[in-house]
C-alpha cells in the first residue's frame, strides 16, 4: 500500500480538528487514506513536525496538535457549536488565529480558581484583564512540553 503523504496527513489532522473539535483517531486516518491502521500509526509517529504534532507515547494517537490539545485542559475554547481545548494561555490566542475567528475562552485563575471568561479575536487586541505567566524559560520549554 502507498505511504501517507505527510503534508496531506498534517492537513487532514488540522481540518478534522477545526471541523469536529477533536483530532482524527488512527482508525479514522486509516480509513481516510485507505491504508492499514498500522500504516496510519506509523505515519503519525513519523510526522514529528517540530513540536507541533505530538503523539501519545502509549496509544500513538494524536496527543497535541499545537495550539490544540486532544485532552481536556483548563482552557476551553468555543466557536459556535465547536469546542476545543487549548494547551495553555498562549495557545488560546493561537486557536483564534488559526480558526481566523473570534472565540470565547472559559477558564479560571491558576492561583485562586476564580472563573475567567475571555474573548480572543485575531484582529482585535484583548479587552479582558489578566496575566499570562511563563514559569519555564524558553531554553527549557521542550524538555517537558506537558509541564511547560
Amino acid at each position: 500500500m502507498a505511504d501517507i503523504d505527510p503534508v496531506a496527513l498534517r492537513v487532514f489532522v488540522y481540518n478534522e480538528l477545526l471541523d469536529r473539535g477533536m483530532p482524527p483517531r488512527i482508525t479514522e486516518i486509516a480509513v481516510h487514506f485507505r491504508v492499514a491502521p498500522n500504516e496510519a500509526r506509523r505515519a503519525l509517529a513519523e510526522l514529528r513536525i517540530g513540536k507541533t504534532i505530538l503523539v501519545h507515547p502509549q496509544s500513538g494517537e494524536v496527543w497535541m496538535a499545537g495550539p490544540f490539545s486532544a485532552t481536556e485542559t483548563p482552557y476551553r475554547v468555543t466557536l459556535g457549536h465547536r469546542q476545543w481545548w487549548a494547551n495553555c494561555a498562549w495557545d488560546m490566542f493561537g486557536i483564534a488565529t488559526i480558526a481566523r475567528a473570534m472565540v470565547r475562552v472559559d477558564t479560571h485563575c491558576t492561583d485562586c480558581g476564580d472563573p475567567m471568561n475571555l474573548v480572543c479575536d485575531p484582529d482585535v487586541p484583548p479587552n479582558d484583564r489578566g496575566v499570562v505567566h511563563f514559569l519555564v524559560p524558553a531554553r527549557r520549554w521542550y524538555e517537558n512540553i506537558g509541564f511547560t
Binding site: W90, F93, G94, L118, P122, P125, P126, G130, F134, P137
Partner: peptide
Amino acid sequence: GAMLDLTRVWRLANAWY
C-alpha cells in the same frame, strides 16, 4: 519567571501561529 499582559500574548500568538 516572566509575566506578560494579554495584549503582548495576543501579538505573540498572531506572530507565532
